[in-house]
Design a protein around this nucleic acid. Structure first.
Lengths: 232, 232
DNA sequence: CACATATTCAAGTATTCTCTTGAACATGAA
DNA sequence: TTCATGTTCAAGAGAATACTTGAATATGTG
């Protein structure tokens, strides 16, 4: 341990906070936050992400390079494609912390949700272990209403994959005497809102789980992978 | 719950992520992160902060206004002074999450610490409840080596206030047969490093508690307030 | 090898951010 | 009221950022 004079102490702090600020800078763009939110669901290639977000390839690549320099994402090359993924659960927790502060403190966020979505169903109170038990004994039908690729990359055990475009088809196959719970990417993802709205219209007792799959994962709850849960 | 067409869904996401990015932008400046770190210790006036950080008043005020617009800090007026404080523990947790990602993922941060400080003593493993018990029974002497005002605003119960400039004076009063533990603002604060270095040089068995007072607080551990612990 | 595809890099422009300076505003004291 | 103090606001210079376009690079295929 060296003892620092005042000037050195100032330089130390300047350099240190400068590094932390690199992370803040990476979080300072709406595009990059959306990328983090999408990458929390599953890894994706540059083109794939650009397409989903409506960005030019070069622009998407640029944003991803910035996230990579801040070490918030990592890459993997497969042939000619480069797949980006979150650099660990800690990064998701950072995005989660940001999301929670925003939700709790920025009235503007509540206002936007209200303006676009009106009142939303929220299944806040339910205990995760209790939900799992009910799914297991068949009291509750759990639907994963994200795009199928995201289901495949990880889902709540016992959940049934129901990508938005397939909801209509499976309406007939759902039991009318059981509670239906739908979840998707996270608190601000609307797939589950829309699924619940449609299900209720069709006469089902449907609710929305507020948590997304990544939130579920970082709670330490079990996550299943693969195409189907038939062979766990 | 309204159903959104694709364009409305895009607008919804754009507006939403834009708001979250305001928080990221507030975290994107090294100065503002340093401010959050200082405000996590105690509320401070603009001039006071500007002085400690070596900024012009106008510049400090400007940064603080940005933090306030992002609702990360709140203000209180007292006479002609305006005191800024963190807008709740959640905000500290956000800064903590950023700090942890940086610490874990940015090699540059480890390099800076290494370059300025060399190897640091770290009392990681100790259990907080165990520490409190030992302090209570007198096995451990706990020193709060932050500036006195920060001690007064909140400290670990049983800790003795030892602002850096007073360390020399109290050296004689410390028992030589007990372990001494010093803590300060947080993992990157060097007050405790310097205190420990001096104490060891003087022959004491001294260690550094990695946690700062705000970290301690958000763990839900007890925090004492006021000038002294004599009348708890 | 030439060719196609996915990604990255480089340069340019418009915008935004930081810090400075000096003026304006708010509060309390004389 | 006038004055002093602490804070905020407004304008401007210089640096950094976001997005576009087009070229360069890397990998796999015929």
């Amino acid at each position: 341990m060296k003892v620092l004079d005042q000037a050195a102490h100032r330089r130390f702090k300047d350099e240190l906070y400068q590094e932390f600020a690199r992370l803040g800078q990476a979080l300072a763009s709406p595009r990059r936050l959306e990328m983090l939110d999408l990458l929390a669901q599953r890894e994706r290639s540059v083109e794939d992400l650009a397409q989903e977000m409506g960005l030019s390839i070069a622009n998407a690549s640029q944003h991803l390079r910035i996230l990579a320099h801040a070490r918030l994402v990592e890459t993997r090359r497969e042939g000619t494609r480069v797949y980006y993924r979150l650099a660990g659960d800690q990064v998701f927790r950072l995005w989660q912390a940001l999301r929670e502060v925003g939700e709790a403190r920025l009235a503007e966020i509540g206002a936007i949700v209200q303006r676009y979505l009106g009142e939303r169903d929220q299944l806040e109170a339910i205990d995760a272990a209790e939900l799992l038990r009910r799914v297991e004994v068949g009291e509750v039908v759990l639907l994963d209403v994200r795009p199928f690729e995201e289901y495949r990359a990880g889902h709540i055990p016992g959940a049934q994959p129901v990508p938005p475009e397939r909801l209509e088809q499976i309406l007939q196959t759902l039991p009318r005497d059981r509670e239906i719970v739908a979840y998707c990417r996270g608190p601000f993802c609307i797939f589950s809102d829309e699924a619940v709205a449609r299900l209720r219209q069709a006469g089902f007792a449907a609710h929305r789980l507020r948590l997304g799959l990544p939130d579920w994962r970082v709670l330490g709850l079990p996550v299943a992978k693969g195409d189907t849960d038939d062979a766990p």
